[in-house]
Amino acid sequence: MIEGRKILGSIGLGILTIFVIVAVFAPYIAPHDPHQMYRPMEHPSSSHLLGTNDIGNDILSEIVYGTRVSLFIAFVVSVISMLVGTSLGLVAGYFDKVGFLIMRVVDVVLTIPRLPLIIVIASFIRPSIWNLIALFLIFGWTMPARIIRSEVLTLRRRYYIDATKMIGGSDFYILWRHILPNVIPLVVVQFIMEAIHVILAESGLCFLGLGDPVAMSWGMVFHYAFECPIIYVSDVWMWWMLPPGLCIVFTVLGLTFVGYALEETFNPKLKNPFGGMER
């Protein structure tokens, strides 16, 4: 079973690495400038591997650049969410009074249905990458904050925290040096979950036409394809709709595999002597 996890993890990591390389080196990988207009609605050929769309852009190049946009949004949102969520979770778990306030805010935000509200707000504000990112951030920090806090609540009961207080470690030092390293595994798992969520949600918003029309993400490619009537009567969808869809699916799969493999790595060393489950 451990072996299985390792294999899946490597597969996931492989998939993600490919996408990241594509995103970083998009200008070198894309065969054409995605804004360049060629003859519209061309079928795949040696010069346009995935053909062109209704306004004549090379679809493959669009998808390659789309990788950049999609991953960028997911990455920025996840990183900031984790930074904010972890810091607040640490503080909330360690200092009771501030923690109480933070958790009430979290409770309020968490009772709001996330996706519907995002859709509603998105339909009112001007769609742009930064607005999308801001929108996701409103919710992104809450789950990590809550999970980290509950972990800190148990960690701070450990005697080694008292032992560090005793040798004169300040609260900040204890949080930084002793508590943070112990919650990092949780943060990583939360990071992956948030990235999955953002990738899916962003595609969904684009699909509904609430994405940034100038920043071509995978979701936007998909959206434009969907809006074009020809898609229903010919097999154009095979190279216009399917590839961005597959990109989304594979990224999510890759993230899931990595998350699954990490779970094993982060597990403590000993199993429970009294029963099945592992500590």
Binding site: Y159, Y160, D162, A163, M166, I167, G168, S170, H178, P181
Partner: peptide, 21 residues
């Protein structure tokens, strides 16, 4: 914080008074 280093306690359960990581 200033006075704490002068008073030290050896806790009962040594395993948990060390940071496992």
């Amino acid at each position: 914080l200033a006075i704490r280093p002068r008073i030290q306690m050896i806790f009962q359960d040594p395993d948990s008074s060390l940071n496992p990581r």
